[in-house]
Write a protein that binds this DNA or RNA. Structure first.
Length: 556
RNA sequence: GCGCCCGUAGCUCAAUUGGAUAGAGUAUUUGACUACGAAUCAAAAGGUUAGAGGUUCGAGUCCUCUCGGGCGCGCCA
């Protein structure tokens, strides 16, 4: 348990004890004590709404109850400096700051492990994200999904979950057929032959490049094959090429998947049939008009869904059901899918399928990432993957820089439509929030470098009780918040909380920096105390950056 | 037509999932560099939380309706 948590537990117990002592309510009538950190620090370090909650039970006015609680609280037991009653009945606690002296040494000792907690109890969680079809370049929406998904995974890991990052490769189905014939057309075009692109083909630049590369490497080898062999070859080559590109682009984006899961493998190892059988055995499957249906309406879906088409092939849903069945069989307590908003209509049927397999559908969570709109020169840019007129993730990173892209995407909660202003993101000015935070880290690094040159080392036994100035206390408290911010970010699946926190931490540091001088030749004891503080800020900042996949530069 | 999501400062977004006077960045205005990094700090100004009802001690947050925007609604994936 970290220091802030300890404080809060202690305080909660003392509040409960006071309520009991005053006879305001019986033990079983007391609601769980809720502690909040007031937005306005003039309202103390913590506040509770206990008095309002007890109004009904105690049959007294909230403010009166608050006064009674106040009288019965043991200040020293709760490490409380002062108690105020405010507003409709809030009880505000001003804590004794002496606990903060323990904070700095504990952060220094924890190092890059600072922020960890065991909130997740080592539960196995699987997160599937991006999972773009291997038929073209990753674009803006995927970049958002990759940023948010990877950050969520990091935050979950830091909070004590056992996380698996997974990418589902849609290497079966119609789109791969279209890929094969698109590659074929580009190949012949590269050989100088006039070959029209198919109606549903992929017009991306990457396919043109692939056609050229194949023509260079293999010359007219494919042209001389039988039609069947040629199709097979292009299918294979296309997949290989696209998959390699996806893996490289994501690796360059600092996203590392543990598992690349092939849809085709489900066809080959019989898992689709197993899943179908399971659904059938549970009585959720029927035949009609020559097709096999899943009665998903039993579980709240709008309409029943086809599993096997009249022509005998499966719909997209069927292998996906098998995939999800397999996920749970691998022992994950929680399965999280991060999907683009264009797939939200797919949620009810997937949940229905999970439930029909006898699994609690609450174990499947689907996080929807809203669409990204790109603006350039103040105008909306039209994008279409089919015609190849999309800005790719790679281009975006080349233009904007990886740190800024990742920061920008994690900065916003996933459930709002995002306008990405290309001109703003590109600008290397202070308009770009990522620099504000990175600058704080660089500044700290610079201070530490200079201190070292002057023979001042950071040591854990510095007398941090000297840190009593307002800005120092604010900064200490902010550092102390970190583990809980991480845990909450994980629990609520809101990785953007981390960037909010980074901004606050950076702001607290810059403000402190403006008010107090760290290295003071005439006061070595104070210098050492502040150096220890600054070092703990640096550790926290760096750990926070690493959660969102952004670098913490020592110089800029 | 039906379903899901969104609507908060000029702009881009937060808001401890029902808490106090709705906050940051940016843009605007003012002040601070012979200063450990001015990519910074200090301050001012900026709001009927799209609108109308309702629920309760208390609503940006929950419910109903209206308006506006996005995305879905296939034996495509």
């Amino acid at each position: 348990m970290n220091i802030a948590e300890k404080m809060q537990t202690q305080l909660k117990e003392e509040i409960k004890a006071a309520v009991l002592k005053a006879g305001l309510a019986a033990e079983n009538e007391i609601p769980a004590v809720i502690l909040e950190t007031p937005k306005d620090k003039a309202h103390g370090d913590y506040s509770t709404n206990m008095a309002m909650q007890l109004a009904r039970v105690a049959k007294k006015a909230p403010r009166q109850i608050a006064e009674i609680i106040q009288e019965n609280i043991d200040l020293s037991k709760g490490s409380i400096e002062k108690i105020d009653i405010a507003g409709p009945g809030f009880i505000n606690f001003y804590m004794n700051n002496s606990y903060l002296t323990d904070l700095v040494p504990s952060v220094l000792a924890a190092g890059n492990r600072y922020g960890e907690s065991n909130a997740g109890n080592n539960e196995k969680v699987q997160v599937e994200f991006v999972s773009a079809n291997p038929t073209g370049d990753l674009h803006l929406g995927h970049a958002r999904g990759a940023s948010v998904g990877d950050s969520l995974c990091n935050v979950l890991e830091k909070s004590g979950y056992d996380v698996t990052r997974e990418y589902y490769i849609n290497d079966a189905g119609n789109q791969i057929h279209n890929l094969a014939v698109s590659v074929e057309a580009r190949y012949f075009q590269a050989l100088g032959q006039d070959k029209a692109m198919p109606e549903d083909g992929y017009h991306g630049k990457d396919i043109i490049d692939m056609g050229k590369e194949l023509a260079e490497e293999f010359s007219d080898k494919f042209a001389n094959m039988t039609k069947e062999d040629r199709y097979k070859a292009f299918r294979e080559q296309g997949l290989k090429y696209e998959l390699a590109k996806l893996q490289k682009d994501l690796a360059d984006f600092r996203v590392k998947f543990d598992v690349w899961y092939s849809e085709t493998s489900l066809y080959e190892n019989g898992k689709i049939d197993e899943a179908l059988d399971a659904l059938r055995q549970n009585g959720h499957v029927y035949e009609e008009e020559g097709a096999v249906w899943f009665r998903s309406t039993t579980f709240g879906d709008d309409k029943d869904r086809v599993l096997r088409k009249q022509d005998g092939t499966y719909t997209y849903l069927t292998p996906d059901i098998a995939y999800h069945k397999d996920k749970f069989e691998r022992g994950y307590g929680k399965v999280i899918n991060i999907w683009g908003a264009d797939h939200h209509g797919y949620i009810p049927r997937m949940k229905a399928a999970v439930e029909a397999l006898g699994i609690n559908p609450d174990q499947l969570e689907v996080e929807i990432i809203q669409m990204v709109q790109l603006y350039k020169d103040g105008e909306k840019m039209k994008m279409s993957k089919r015609t190849g007129k999309a800005v790719t993730m790679r281009e975006l990173v080349e233009e904007v820089g990886l740190d800024a892209v990742r920061y920008f995407f994690v900065m916003r909660s996933g459930d709002t439509h995002l306008d990405f202003d290309l001109d703003l993101a590109v600008s290397q000015s202070n308009e770009n929030p990522v620099y504000y935070a990175q600058y704080a880290h660089a500044r700290i690094s610079s201070i530490l470098r200079q201190a070292a040159e002057q023979g001042l080392d950071v040591s854990a036994d510095a007398d941090v009780s000297l840190l009593t100035a307002e800005k120092e206390i604010d900064l200490l408290k902010k550092v102390g918040d970190f583990p809980q911010v991480v845990a909450e970010s994980a629990e609520k699946r809101l990785p953007h909380r981390i960037t909010n926190y980074i901004q606050e931490l950076a702001s607290a540091f810059h403000s402190f920096y403006g008010a107090e001088k760290v290295i003071d030749k005439d006061n070595e004891v104070m210098s050492k105390a502040r150096l220890a503080l600054v070092k703990s800020v640096q550790i926290t900042m760096k750990n926070a950056f690493s959660l969102i996949g952004v670098s913490a530069p020592e110089k800029m």
